[in-house]
Amino acid sequence: MLYEQFKVRAEAVSAEVHRFATGDMALEYLTGFLRNEGVSDAPHCSAVWADGSFPAGTERELLGAVPGVTFDVTRERAAQARFGISRMEWALADTGSLAQNSTAIDQRLVSSLPTIHIALVPTSGVLPDMPALLSRVNPKEYAYLAMITGPSRTADIERVLTIGVHGPKRLVIIFVDELGGEN
């Protein structure tokens, strides 16, 4: 129910929403997506992946081996990258928003500088709304709580909606059912 509502709301603001049962399936989709979109070491083709609990172990090594994908996020790399990948802990069903503790700068670099942001979200992290989120987080531990709703947008020129100003032009959301959530 909540997931369906989220999907409708997120798609209404131009986010792309996918869902997979297992981490393997999600990773397979993700690597396919990156390849299709031309990930490589060339400038403006690379992908930066911010630290998170997923993927781990061998999967991580496999992915790191894809040319153009790096887990070593710097300002410069993020500014050059076409893809930014991060794990977002929560999704808010009533507004189609994602949320995470973005205190670590890497999390913000990968979701704000590249042109495509890919967010991996545990399906268990779907919450009904913002009050549910705010009751779960303690700002003392979350110096930077970020919410993201669709790609970057503006309507500042003649009120015409245009996607991708300072932030990503695309937001690809991948739900993974078996990804344990913090909640």
Binding site: G96, L133, M147
Partner: peptide
């Protein structure tokens, strides 16, 4: 949450603005 329920709806008829940041003290630089 109460204010954010009204502000974007009233301002630009959005359910929520694309980005909301709640900042509590400084964070580390790169």
């Amino acid at each position: 949450a109460t204010i954010l329920k009204a502000l974007p709806r009233s301002a630009t008829a959005q359910l929520l603005t694309s980005y909301v940041s709640i900042i509590t003290g400084p964070t580390p630089n790169p």
